[in-house]
Computed example of a mutant assay.
Amino acid sequence: RYELVTDLDLWRLPIPIERFMSQLTQRYALHTILNSASAEGFVVGEQQLSADGSIELVVTRWQG
Rank of each mutant, 00 (worst) to 15 (best):
6 T>P: 05
6 T>L: 15
7 D>G: 05
8 L>R: 11
9 D>P: 06
9 D>R: 14
10 L>R: 14
10 L>C: 08
10 L>F: 09
10 L>A: 15
11 W>I: 04
11 W>L: 04
12 R>K: 11
12 R>W: 00
12 R>I: 00
13 L>E: 15
13 L>A: 13
13 L>R: 15
13 L>S: 11
14 P>M: 07
14 P>H: 10
14 P>L: 02
14 P>F: 03
16 P>R: 05
16 P>S: 09
16 P>G: 04
16 P>F: 01
17 I>A: 13
17 I>W: 09
18 E>C: 05
18 E>Q: 12
19 R>A: 13
19 R>Y: 03
19 R>Q: 15
19 R>V: 09
20 F>D: 02
20 F>E: 06
20 F>P: 05
20 F>K: 08
21 M>K: 12
21 M>L: 15
21 M>E: 15
22 S>C: 04
22 S>D: 14
23 Q>P: 02
23 Q>A: 10
23 Q>C: 02
24 L>N: 10
24 L>Q: 12
26 Q>I: 04
26 Q>E: 13
26 Q>V: 01
27 R>L: 06
28 Y>S: 04
29 A>T: 12
30 L>G: 03
30 L>V: 15
30 L>S: 03
30 L>P: 06
31 H>W: 01
31 H>C: 01
31 H>P: 02
31 H>M: 09
32 T>E: 07
32 T>W: 00
32 T>S: 06
33 I>E: 02
34 L>D: 09
34 L>Y: 00
34 L>H: 00
34 L>E: 13
35 N>Q: 13
36 S>K: 08
36 S>A: 13
36 S>C: 01
36 S>W: 08
37 A>K: 05
37 A>W: 02
37 A>N: 12
37 A>L: 11
38 S>P: 06
39 A>E: 11
39 A>V: 03
39 A>M: 07
39 A>N: 10
40 E>W: 00
41 G>Y: 04
41 G>M: 01
42 F>T: 01
42 F>L: 01
43 V>A: 14
43 V>K: 15
44 V>F: 00
45 G>Y: 08
45 G>L: 03
46 E>L: 06
46 E>V: 00
46 E>P: 03
47 Q>D: 05
47 Q>A: 07
48 Q>W: 05
48 Q>A: 11
48 Q>G: 06
49 L>V: 15
49 L>R: 13
49 L>F: 08
50 S>V: 04
52 D>P: 09
52 D>N: 15
52 D>T: 07
53 G>A: 10
53 G>W: 03
53 G>T: 07
53 G>Q: 07
54 S>Q: 11
54 S>V: 03
55 I>Q: 06
55 I>C: 04
55 I>W: 02
55 I>R: 03
55 I>L: 06
56 E>A: 14
56 E>Y: 02
57 L>V: 03
57 L>Q: 08
57 L>A: 07
58 V>G: 03
58 V>R: 10
58 V>D: 04
58 V>H: 07
58 V>N: 08
59 V>M: 10
59 V>E: 00
59 V>K: 06
